[in-house]
Amino acid sequence: MRTIDEPSLAPPEEREDVIGPTGAGRRRSLLSRETLIVRGAQLMVGLLLLGLWQLAASARWPEPVLARSPGQTASYLFDAAGSGELWSNTRATLKAVLAAWVLAGAAGTVAGVALGLAPRVERVLTPYLDAANAMPRIALAPLFIVALGINTSAKVALASTLVFFIALSGARAGVRSTDAEWLRLSTVLGAGKRQLFVKVLIPVATPAIFAALRLGLIYSLLGVVGSELISARDGLGQLIAYYSSTFRMEAVYGILLLLGLVAVTLNQLMGLAERRLLRWQPPADR
């Protein structure tokens, strides 16, 4: 009878636990159960919030003039969707959001990578960048509107001032996170400057750049809507300004909800792209 485990005689490589297809499969099924639970809980939270809103509306809380029920809001959304008012304005807002995100995201990323690689230049510019980034952007809105006119360019300009700095700091931090050992090894293996950049620095920086761009997309939305609130011909922010001034609160709530929906959708899309691009990361780091 055996009382203790015999030492295995198999060579070590055959004993090693490999996270192979079976491991991954098990993880995926666990994940999908996990996903189900999360989705269920999300639904509950949504219903709870809706219930609280309904309660507040029936109690005419906090102020009769503000109190509107979910039903009233839904009926506004239904009418506005039918009349096309919602679609044209959503499109106008999204167009500006994407333009600012692409332009300022690209410019900020390039600037951040450059600063990450040129520490001396960065030291010179840091106080100016900090000062620029600390400016309340909403204060710049009238300026852009006067300079560019009441149009899409003014919205894009304002949102860009937000997105640019977010992308910049993400890319800069990303490039900085390079491991010196990777650079040493690559150099000895024969990498030139260009190869170090393309094969080490850029992949290293990708997670941070992506996280920044994801955040930047939401800030782009905030910037555009902010600009529209100040002055615009179209866009969801402009609708909010109009309905607020006429105390059509059910419309204001409806549009805010729609904005939330847009933000969640954009975030989910970014998350999807991120997971594809960063599938080399251990799940905990994603």
Partner: peptide
């Protein structure tokens, strides 16, 4: 060239 730390590139 080989070091104590394997220096594998995590994205490969």
């Amino acid at each position: 060239f080989m070091l104590a730390r394997d220096a594998l590139l995590p994205w490969r």
